[in-house]
Design a protein around this nucleic acid. Structure first.
Length: 267
DNA sequence: ATGATCTCCTGAGCGC
DNA sequence: TGCGCTCAGGAGATCA
């Protein structure tokens, strides 16, 4: 489940590999995605890749004539291949590059997004600040917290507030800052907001340094998993001792999502 | 306007 | 062995 560190890992890999390249052919599959973009994906053909940016969990390919938006959803992968290599099931788009390589977009659950916009469009205008942007300061977080009555866990997952945090890092950031996932956002004491901010940025940076977290699905553009899994304190560790106080990690459902936390040291 | 709930989708894991 | 069931979850749509 790619969140910010996983998507940034992929972005860096793509940047190295495809900036300056031309897309010589684009072959979309027939399966329907959740949402179609304004332009057909065939129009990727002929375009040059100028840059590969990211906002939250969205990849934004800056092309010679458009912006290609990629979201990996739960199970999306972007994989390099050579012509003739067996195509994985659930391949929804194949791009051919001018160096002969193929880029395949594979996504069994199709929760992802592949959309082509005209140049200059801002497909991610609705998102909050990227969690690793220099503009995401503790003051910016404080503003958002103040305006929300949502439980902290839901607040962190809301990409309009802060972009890039998903279920794993929301749980980890709350554990680090000793805050209960159920606490109302606006009721975080001023003295703890900077701690929460540090926790969010810290866990994302540390995971990024390890190439992200892999459970079942996530691999980078080279097919390699992330190495951060063993560092997780609470996520998917129900019943295991809290690394800080030893109490058993609990799991509750919030808005249909699993939340993992320590009932003793998160308040 | 905001927060809560529903929806999309497939594969893995489980019990029988 | 294999079948059917449940669960996982990002984000947009819809409901209250």
């Amino acid at each position: 489940m790619p969140e910010l560190p996983e998507v940034e890992t992929i972005r860096r890999g793509l940047e190295r590999e495809i900036v300056g390249r031309q897309i010589t052919h684009a072959a979309p599959g027939r399966a329907k995605f959740r949402a179609a973009g304004p332009r057909p994906l065939r129009e990727l053909a002929g375009q040059h890749v100028v840059a590969v940016a990211r906002h939250g969990k969205f990849l934004l390919w800056d092309l010679s004539d458009g912006t290609f938006v990629v979201h990996l959803g739960m199970t999306g992968r972007i994989l390099f291949a050579h012509p003739g290599e067996a195509e994985p099931r659930h391949t929804h788009l194949v791009l051919e590059l001018d160096d002969g390589r193929l880029l395949r977009f594979v996504d069994p659950r199709r929760f992802g997004v592949l959309q082509l916009f005209r140049r200059g469009a801002d497909p991610v205008a609705h998102l909050g600040l990227d969690a690793l942007s220099p503009d995401f300061t503790w003051q910016a977080l404080a503003c958002q917290l103040q305006a929300s009555r949502a439980p902290l866990k839901a607040f962190l997952l809301d990409q309009r507030r802060v972009a890039g945090v998903g279920n794993i890092y929301a749980c980890e950031a709350l554990w680090r800052s000793r805050l209960s996932p159920r606490r109302e956002a606006r009721h975080v004491a001023a003295s703890r907001i900077a701690l929460l901010h540090d926790a969010i940025v810290g866990v994302l940076r540390e995971s990024l340094a390890q190439g992200g977290t892999s459970f079942n699905d996530y691999v980078n553009h080279l097919g390699e998993p992330g190495r951060y899994l063993p560092q997780l304190a609470v996520y998917a560790r129900e019943g295991n001792p809290c690394p800080r106080c030893g109490d058993a990690v609990r799991r509750v459902a919030q808005g249909g999502r699993s939340t993992f936390y320590c009932g003793r040291c998160q308040r």
